[in-house]
Amino acid sequence: MATTKELIQAYMDEVDRLEEEARAKKRFRAVEGFPYWPHQFMRDSILVLVFLAALGYISAFIPYYLETPANPSGQPLIILPDWYLLWSYGLLKIAVDVTIFGTVIMEGKLLGVLLNGVVVGFMVIVPFIARGAARRPVEAPAMAGYGVFGMLLGITLSIYSVNNVFYQQWGILAQDYYVQAGLNEIFYILQTDLLSILSLVVPILGAFVTYYFLKWRQNITTGQTGYENKLSASYYKIR
């Protein structure tokens, strides 16, 4: 009866043996990573100099204003988090009470918080839904479309987080035919004014445009099926 340690040892020996065999045969094998030391480190040493120069320059010549102190009683016209959290604030604004036939089943605030979690969830599931050896966007148009959808949604939600500014500028964006027709009495989950509809439709459109553009690129590059496997074999395998 072998102990666990012995089993692991045997396994490691076998892996080593197989790898040596593969190397000896000089068959194609998957590309290894680019070593961190010293290769990536040398690359980074250039970055250090560029970064420090740029940071000093920006800090000296692009000042940001000194803000007025906090005043709990006077809410300003525009309240914002920093730019990288605008999407989250946009989600809070776009979420309304979930209503089915006049019954509220979830508060809008809670929905907004849950949607923030959903965004993180969308990022976590990526390795589970993307399979295969494809690396380039052109090899996996669906995943590229998914990514473009996410990025555009981030941008449009950031725009939606300052919706009151846009409403002031272009009144048509505040038009809400859904509510005017009384449809919100039947089912209501997200804001339905023109700006909010655009901020959901534009990312979906962007995803489809990306998908079909990449499909078109695939066809004009090769004009044959099985292109992905050929590309993978020639690009990602080395001797």
């Binding site: 102190p69 005043n71 709990p72 309240i79 920093d82 604030y89 809670l110 918080v113 923030n116």
Partner: peptide, 23 residues
Amino acid sequence: YLLPWSQLSFWAGRIGLEMALAT
């Protein structure tokens, strides 16, 4: 972002607080 305790900091803090309270 909240540390300078300016107007924007305060109201960004309010957004975060409301998110926490809504959970």
